[in-house]
């Protein structure tokens, strides 16, 4: 084998090594840059057509994180996360009960019994142009 062909072979191998290294390095870099250690929680939810929530309904949203209530007081959403330490309250006929430490809230989210001191959060709900209800937490 001549020196020239040897050099050509080495050049070919070297090129292969470098391209593969670049691919691996770039893959790692993209993976690193795409990683978000503190992803922002979803804050906007499309609940679908408003006609899906007639008077007298109570509908759990986002795995029960919110309840959309449509009663004589109107249409409103309540964030069911307890304001004491963040447990998910359980809806009942008269309000919400925290299974962790026993706080009670009425159907408006106001505190009936501690230890929670603050009312449940009430996110805004609006009707978009397409007739869908949009919940903003």
């Amino acid at each position: 084998m001549s020196d020239l062909s040897r050099n050509g072979f080495l050049k070919l191998v070297r090129g292969g090594f470098l391209w593969l290294s670049a691919a691996l390095g770039l893959g790692g870099l993209l993976r690193f840059l795409n990683y978000d250690p503190n992803p922002a929680p979803q804050s906007e939810f499309d609940l679908g057509p408003a006609t899906n929530f007639p008077l007298g309904t109570r509908t759990g949203i986002a795995d029960g994180q919110f309840v959309l209530i449509h009663d004589e007081l109107g249409l409103r959403a309540i964030n069911t996360t307890c304001t004491h330490l963040g447990c998910q309250t359980a809806p009942g006929p008269d309000g919400f009960t925290c299974p962790c430490h026993g706080s009670h809230f009425d159907l408006r989210g106001d505190v009936l019994q501690g230890p929670a001191a603050k009312a449940l959060n009430v996110p805004s709900v609006e009707l978009n142009d397409g007739g869908h209800l949009i919940l903003h937490d």
């Binding site: 050099n7 080495l10 050049k11 191998v13 070297r14 290294s21 691996l24």
Partner: peptide, 19 residues
């Protein structure tokens, strides 16, 4: 020139192996 080529190729191989 050949020795240098060998050295660079070896370094590239080492880089790939490390990655």
């Amino acid at each position: 020139n050949y020795l240098m080529n060998k050295l660079i190729t070896f370094a590239a191989g080492f880089l790939l192996l490390s990655l």
